Amino acid sequence: MASHPPSKCCIVGVKHEGEAVGTVEKVGGYDAYITYPKDGSSKNAVIIFPDFMGYELINARLIADQLAANGYFTIIPDIWLGDNVPLNWNPSRQFNLGQWMGKHGPDTVMPIAEAAIKAMREDYGVEKLGGVGYCLGAKYVCRFLAEGKGLDVGFIAHPTAVTSEEVRGLGGPLAIAAAETDDLFPAPKRHETEAILKDMDVPYQISLYSDVDHGFAFKADLKDAKVRFATETAFLQAVNLFDHFVKAG
């Protein structure tokens, strides 16, 4: 595998502050958070595959709104069907991550994601589409970045459960934001991923951020200046990627 399976570090973090400006609508028959750029255009777009907390967590919606502010029609499909993992779970809350994973594997998630991408293309007039994936969501960016699967370019942060085969199947540019301390995407896995990408004919970028651990791009403590720098820079990494391969592509 190019990254390890999920563990408890995937479901701890900090809830961010702010108010979302988008709306929840049906996209391809499933709930999704939708937010538009200032000009109302949906030509250039991004789909976000969130981590375990799902599309309802304010962190995900604020990221979507920030992408919209940078000119991208953005949606977050409800890939967990409302069954989001509680943030900062602990055993006393009687939540079993293994059981949850059994209910929300690719067989369940892929049809939801496929329906959202199809609707974005056909119903919203999206011409170029980038994908963002955090933690387990990175797996679906890689899958849909395969040739002809729907995405034109992908950005993933602290990936979880991505297989080597999924990396080898990429058909478009990929950028990766990696944490200095990450048991699920440690240095050996980063190097394995880099070795695969080096032999492929797709543009790629791997950026390593110091002073942060797994989840930093999605649910880090932004009161820490070093962490905030990494989180904000990783977001700009994604925007720069999309500006080159979505807007200009």
Rank of each mutant, 00 (worst) to 15 (best):
M1Q: 08
H4Q: 15
P5M: 13
S7T: 14
C9T: 15
C10N: 06
G13F: 05
V14W: 04
K15M: 15
K15T: 15
A20R: 14
V21S: 08
G22E: 03
V24H: 11
Y30W: 15
I34T: 02
T35M: 06
P37C: 07
K43F: 05
K43I: 01
A45G: 07
V46H: 02
I48G: 02
P50T: 07
D51R: 00
D51I: 04
M53K: 02
G54E: 00
L57K: 01
I58P: 01
A60I: 03
I63H: 08
I63T: 13
A64L: 05
D65H: 04
Q66V: 01
G71S: 04
Y72E: 01
I75M: 05
I76F: 07
P77H: 04
G82H: 14
N84I: 10
V85A: 12
V85H: 03
P86A: 05
L87V: 06
L87Q: 09
L87R: 06
N88Y: 08
N90K: 14
P91W: 03
R93F: 13
Q94C: 06
L97Q: 13
Q99C: 00
Q99A: 14
K103R: 13
G105Q: 08
G105T: 06
A113C: 11
A115W: 09
A115D: 10
A116R: 02
K118T: 15
K118Q: 12
V126H: 05
V126W: 04
V126D: 03
E127S: 12
V132S: 11
G133I: 12
L136H: 11
A138T: 12
C142H: 10
C142S: 09
F144E: 09
F144I: 11
A146K: 10
G148P: 08
D152R: 00
F155G: 10
P159H: 11
A161I: 12
S164H: 01
E166P: 04
V167H: 08
R168A: 14
L170P: 02
G172S: 03
A175H: 10
A177S: 09
A179W: 10
A179C: 07
L184M: 15
F185P: 06
F185Q: 06
P188R: 15
R190W: 05
E192R: 06
T193Q: 08
T193F: 11
A195D: 15
A195H: 07
A195S: 15
D199H: 05
M200V: 01
Y204A: 00
S207D: 14
S207K: 15
D213C: 13
H214Y: 09
H214D: 04
G215F: 02
K219E: 00
A220Q: 00
D221M: 07
A225V: 12
A225N: 12
R228Y: 01
T231K: 11
T233F: 00
A238L: 07
V239R: 04
N240S: 15
L241E: 00
D243I: 04
D243T: 09
F245R: 03
K247I: 08
G249I: 12
